[in-house]
Amino acid sequence: MVPSKLSLWYGILIGAAAFAGDQQITYSLVPHACSTGHFYVLYCATGIALLLALSGAAMGGRNLAVTRSASIDGGTRADRSRFMAILGIAASLGFATIILAMAVPRFMLSPCD
């Protein structure tokens, strides 16, 4: 059995998309948060981005399990799928780390300074 292309691409791309979305959306929400005091929107945006990135890792994990018997440098669809699944897990976890790194200063600095 071979994972669907959609799930493989989801694993590879969702982490990057979540990172970009978190950076852009949170940055543009700062004026709103500072003027209304609704800082939770910043945490919500980052939380959603983090969950999305981790969902990519989970999807990659699932795809990896499906292609357990394949090799990442072989020429079959299963081999190529396993390679993409590994890329998906690593990319999603990497971008989740970046999202967390960008969120940490928010606990120590006031976004309104």
Binding site: Q23, Y27, V30, A101, M102, P105, R106, L109, C112, D113
Partner: peptide, 10 residues
């Protein structure tokens, strides 16, 4: 803003 610094530094 400080937020800008922190995002892009990270």
């Amino acid at each position: 803003p400080m937020m800008g610094y922190s995002f892009f530094t990270a």
